[in-house]
Design a protein around this nucleic acid. Structure first.
Lengths: 115, 115
DNA sequence: TAACTATATAACAATATTCTTATATGATCA
DNA sequence: TGATCATATAAGAATATTGTTATATAGTTA
């Protein structure tokens, strides 16, 4: 029994670790209720495309998000099947909306390229 | 307003970062409903005393825990005044109890030294 | 006061993380 | 098919984190 509980804490810690980065936490909040593609993240965070890909990979590696390819684009969204989904939602609820970042993209016309 | 929300995510990420470590996350669960002193953590985690102190410092630096000196001993507990306390409780609720680790200490008689 | 116990801090080596540049993969379009 | 666009991966430099040993601080006790 002791082994079981240890195992669970050992599984939880890496989840918090990936969330412990401003960029990745903002990504999670952005896709809380919608889907975003890689190019949007690149625009929003003003970071290089490889850097964005690597952040997304870390979120995906722990199962927090899932990807879906649509033509040339890859769209990311919360993984509702993750065992951490419930906890994740309760955390995201307590963070401020990041919608303004998407709205700004629309103003710039940058979001239209792929969506 | 955009600035404000960014600021809040920027404040939340370091919280998850300190929680993103197995030792520190277990520490938080251990003191969820009680107080522990440094020497107990040293026993429980079988780590060096400086290493334990450094982990506790990180938790304290972000305000998640508070310390209270009682004679030679320093006792750590959750900081109920932290703005993250509510979120923290809801996270800890979803993690398995680590009481067994304290019970084991009592069996070994190791807990009696300071408590 | 001196010796002892508990804890904190400093310095450093080992390791991990993050970003960058270069390149590979995969889809679309002319 | 070749060119182009979107994304992923690889490799390496810069930086951050973690644990260790040595030492400092603070309280207790003889």
């Amino acid at each position: 029994m002791a082994t079981k509980t240890e195992f669970q804490i050992e599984k939880a810690a890496p989840i918090f670790k990936v969330l412990g980065d401003k960029t990745r936490l903002t990504m999670m909040k952005l896709i809380e209720n919608q889907t975003c593609c890689v190019c949007e993240f690149v625009e929003i965070f003003q970071m290089s495309q490889p850097s964005i890909s690597q952040h997304l990979r870390k979120l995906r590696d722990v199962g927090l998000i899932k990807e879906e390819r649509k033509g040339q684009w890859v769209f990311y969204s919360l993984n509702h099947e993750s065992e951490w989904f419930g906890l994740m939602k309760s955390i995201l609820e307590q963070l401020p909306s990041q919608e303004d970042k998407l709205i700004e993209l629309e103003k710039n016309g940058t979001r239209i390229t792929c969506c």
